[in-house]
Amino acid sequence: MDSYINIKVRVWRQAGPKAQGHFETYELKHIFQGASFLEMIDILNEQLIAEKKDPIAFDHDCREGICGMCSMYVNGHPHGPDSAITTCQLHMRHFHDGETITVEPWRSRAFPVIKDLMVDRQAYDKIMQAGGFVSVNTGGVPDANAIAIPKPVADEAMDAASCIGCGACAAACKNGSAMLFVSAKVSQLALLPQGKIEAAKRAKAMVAKMDELGFGNCTNTGACAAECPKSVSLANIARLNREFLCAKFQD
């Protein structure tokens, strides 16, 4: 049963991208375990505001685990200790009375800190802009049922497409690699006949952009998939490798 707990929160505070960051510890009393982690941070912020202090800046929006905006590294895990969820879906019942919870921002060269727990993830958008699409304009497309797609293929594409672009994969990876993110999109589109046509071009363009932006090299540790809030599979990385190598050998 959920009850009330007292906790300490050790939060990374950093005034700006170039400022020196540090940890600060705050005490919170009487936190209901049914509250979400972000609601706990809300309460902390209200407390800080009441003390006329600067509240903690953090990214969040939908609070139902789909927008991919929230991004906290809680007790050594991106999105915290529970599995297959985002930070906003983490609940205080995963913590016990008297616990000190450490909260950090994503740390990766490609995700510079903006303030406190807020990081800049535009690198992911740039990778998408390099090729994460099917080149069709609006209008003039065939009927939706003109091409039949086997259900297992469509389902696998859907699973890859469920990526929310939160950045937990790169944050979890000891190499700062974005391969799971890139491979999810490459996989989704390479599986479907609509996307197959430019699959080779897409794989090359997206990988080139990923490398250019300073993400690391994948060493298949699998930390990304283990921490992915949407359980995107490592098999996608294999498919990306395959698509990329085939494309390069064809050149």
């Binding site: 699409f133 099917v134 069709v136 609006t138 209008g139 497309v141 065939p142 009927d143 939706a144 049922n145 091409i147 039949a148 797609i149 086997p150 259900k151 469509a154 389902d155 594409a157 859907m158 497409a161 989704q188 589109l189 479907l192 609509q194 996307g195």
Partner: peptide
Amino acid sequence: DQCVAQGVPFAREYGGL
């Protein structure tokens, strides 16, 4: 039609439609 052309993975039947 547009979304399918973009690669939106809508649910399908076993026949592929």
